[in-house]
Amino acid sequence: MNSLDLPGRPEDTRVVVAMSGGVDSSVVAGILKREGYDVVGVTLQLYDHGAATHRAGSCCAGRDIDDARRVSETLRIPHYVLDYEERFRQAVIDPFAESYVAGETPIPCVSCNQTVKFADLLETARDLGAAALATGHYIRSRSNGAHRALYRPVDADRDQSYFLFATTQEQIDYLRFPLGGMPKPEVRAIAAELGLAVADKQDSQDICFVPQGKYSDIIARLKPAAATPGDIVHIDGRVLGRHEGILRYTIGQRRGIGIASGEPLYVVHLDAERARVVVGPREALETRKVYLRAMNWLGDEDLDAIGPDGIELFAKVRSTRPPRPAVLRRRGGATWVELAEGESGIAPGQACVLYGDDGNDARVLGGGFIERSERGARAEAMLARLAALPVDVAAE
């Protein structure tokens, strides 16, 4: 076995590297080339939104494609640019906008990995005769019986496992993540050692296709209905003001709500059907149960055979939060996670990612998208009452 846990010598092993034009994927191509692998670089052109293609921190656009091409020339590896703009729009941008219209807070990076990168590009890598597709993600994979499993990386500050929970077992078996065992400073040092022009390049941002980071502008253009004005309503039914579209709000938001109040208020619910932004005190955000859809289970246990006690594990409901103790339960087709410690600001459309423990070497057990959350009994009762009232009644 070689360094990628593949049979055969490196020089007899073709590996396609997904090159975004950033330092991480460039270093992956560089170290694999240095180890003797038959490396082929592939860059996806995903969008062309004018200013976004020149913005520092964007990826898979004009300037970054040029950077990937220059790196490939330095490394002397073949490099291909594939036009995936239409596929990216259909699979990522359109669902992103539709999710906001529905009052959710989506994660486009997960959708991109699910569809464009780990489905379409993976098939392209197979067509090129590659034994594996390697990426610059900070996550680890290693053998687990007849398959491979995912684990959190050495560099906890760069942990990207939250965005990769939807990776299927078949994809995991084919993918390789050479940077999972390295801290970021070491990666940049290797880039400088290899003479790569991107050694000091700024890291890409999460929402790569949004010019100046203003996602509301993209959504308003694609889905004008999301910019429909409506009421800002207190959870107790009082109308406190007006807003210019629910797309400008997220669950848990406190600043920039657009109303003056003698008490701290947070966005606790987005009523897309009635174009209402519901606000309330912080305690109305407290959540201990989240229901999941599109569940991707990577654990060894049979998910459909979960007993009444559920499975004790650790859950992460935000990319920036550490995994917390939880119990996974499944009954009657429904899957939910009970959090041992309350979390606030949980929004539909976000991910709940599951782990074997809370350590840096924790195994990724999969996860799902949050369909809805269950608050405390008082908050749930107030939201139910508000939902039952006609808009004109709530306004009185």
Rank of each mutant, 00 (worst) to 15 (best):
S26F: 07
R318P: 00
A102F: 01
L313Q: 12
L313E: 08
S26V: 09
V233P: 00
Q160T: 02
D127Q: 10
E85C: 12
D127E: 12
S72H: 03
G21Y: 07
A294V: 08
Q160N: 07
G252F: 07
G195V: 04
K33F: 05
G349T: 04
P211M: 08
L175N: 01
D206Q: 09
V279E: 05
G252E: 04
E273G: 10
V92S: 02
R238Y: 00
R330G: 01
Q45I: 00
G367T: 08
A284E: 00
C112R: 08
G213H: 04
I31E: 08
Q205E: 09
E283N: 14
L383Q: 14
C109N: 08
S3M: 13
A146W: 06
P264D: 09
L194T: 00
M382D: 13
G36D: 10
R254F: 04
V42F: 09
L175C: 06
I232A: 00
R331Q: 15
R63F: 08
F88P: 05
R255N: 03
Y249G: 02
D127M: 07
R321F: 12
Q350N: 11
E374C: 13
Y138C: 03
G57T: 11
A384P: 06
V23S: 01
G22K: 03
P183S: 04
G8L: 05
Y291H: 15
P323N: 04
I346S: 00
Y47E: 13
C112F: 03
G310L: 02
E263F: 07
P322E: 09
G262V: 05
G22I: 09
S111H: 12
A326C: 11
T74L: 03
Y249P: 02
V116L: 08
W297S: 10
V23E: 02
I235C: 00
Y266N: 03
S141P: 05
Q160F: 11
L389Y: 09
V233A: 07
P229T: 06
R242S: 14
A395P: 02
G349F: 02
E312K: 12
I93Q: 01
G230F: 01
V71M: 04
W336T: 13
R89T: 11
I190L: 13
P10L: 11
R254N: 06
H234P: 04
